[in-house]
Amino acid sequence: MSPSQITVVLFGLGLTILIAWYFWFAPKAQTRVAVSASGAQEVAITVRGGYTPDVIVVQKGRPVRLTFTRQESSACSEKVLFPDFNQNANLPEGEQVTLEFTPDKAGEYGFQCQMGMLRGKLIVE
């Protein structure tokens, strides 16, 4: 093998490790939600190519109020679903849409767009 081939193989190995680490193993930033005066845990989420923030930590037993604002016209993100809580909402572009429910069991629950391209996680503690 020529030096350039060896370099490419090594480069491929390195890139593989990097991809695996970046997408699967690196710890993700979590957003902890503060409890507002009304007793609800309120968080505003921007929808644009993804959910920002996308990992949301809440406490169980308290109502969670998520306000979504979709800032893109791509039809992919026009709905947001919380299948574990049987909650869903249409997100018209530019409008604030609020979903409210009370998680009463600790655990990790995914939320996503209708076809699962955009994903986020609700961690209930």
């Binding site: 993700k28 190519g49 391209m117």
Partner: peptide
């Protein structure tokens, strides 16, 4: 443009999709 902005947004969230 949607592929690039969407792909970048996903990348920032440490996720990847069709974009």
């Amino acid at each position: 443009s949607d592929f690039f902005t969407g792909g970048w947004a996903a990348f920032k969230h440490r996720s990847a999709n069709m974009n």
